[in-house]
């Protein structure tokens, strides 16, 4: 583990110096108060949303009647759209659409898991991580695009 010291092990004198220099603050009460304020704020937002926009409850499930437009919840839309795109790959053979569609989901999760092991560049400054930042922004744009596409189609 390079350079970063386990924070707990910093001697108390060192902590006091860091606080005097404004780089750190006491966990209590400063940090705790902040967290409580944030939690109260989130709580108010949630109550407001639940009151003004109560969740919709459709009709009871009927296994003999499929409704017209079945779409998953918004957070599954991007991956749903990938499946639909994969259906266009049937020129590769009848096997292709389904297997590639599901395969892509697996690959995405795999890549996500591997991020820290693929990107071994220790630098954290934006200007020294051009590839990682570009790929990140690209992924976000693609995900938003796929979600909107699925939403409006």
């Amino acid at each position: 583990m390079k350079k970063e010291v386990e924070i707990k092990k910093i001697p108390i004198e060192e902590k006091k110096r860091l606080i005097r220099e404004g780089k750190m603050k006491w966990f209590f009460p400063g940090h705790v108060v902040e967290q409580v304020v944030i939690c109260l704020f989130i709580f108010v937002i949630m109550i407001t949303l639940a009151t003004l926009f109560p969740p919709h409850l459709g009709s009871m499930a009927d296994p003999f009647n499929t409704p017209d437009h079945i779409k998953p919840e918004w957070y599954f839309l991007a991956s749903f759209q990938l499946l639909i795109i994969a259906e266009k790959l049937d020129f590769l053979g009848a096997w292709a659409p389904k297997i590639l569609g599901v395969g892509m989901q697996g690959v995405i999760i795999g890549i996500l898991l591997m991020v820290p092991f693929i990107d071994r560049n220790p630098d954290r400054k934006y200007k020294n991580r051009k590839i990682a930042i570009t790929l990140g922004i690209l992924s976000v744009i693609i995900a938003i695009f796929l979600t909107l596409w699925a939403h409006f189609s």
Binding site: L57, G58, S59, M60, A61, D62, P63, N65, T66, P67, I70, K71, P72, E73, F76, L83, K98, I99, G101, V102, Q105
Partner: peptide
């Protein structure tokens, strides 16, 4: 909640892994 939406979304959602 066993609504139309939840039922059919689950039908579709659980169909997906059958492609593996």
């Amino acid at each position: 909640p066993w609504t139309q939406l939840s039922y059919w979304a689950t039908v579709v959602g659980t169909e997906v892994p059958s492609a593996v």
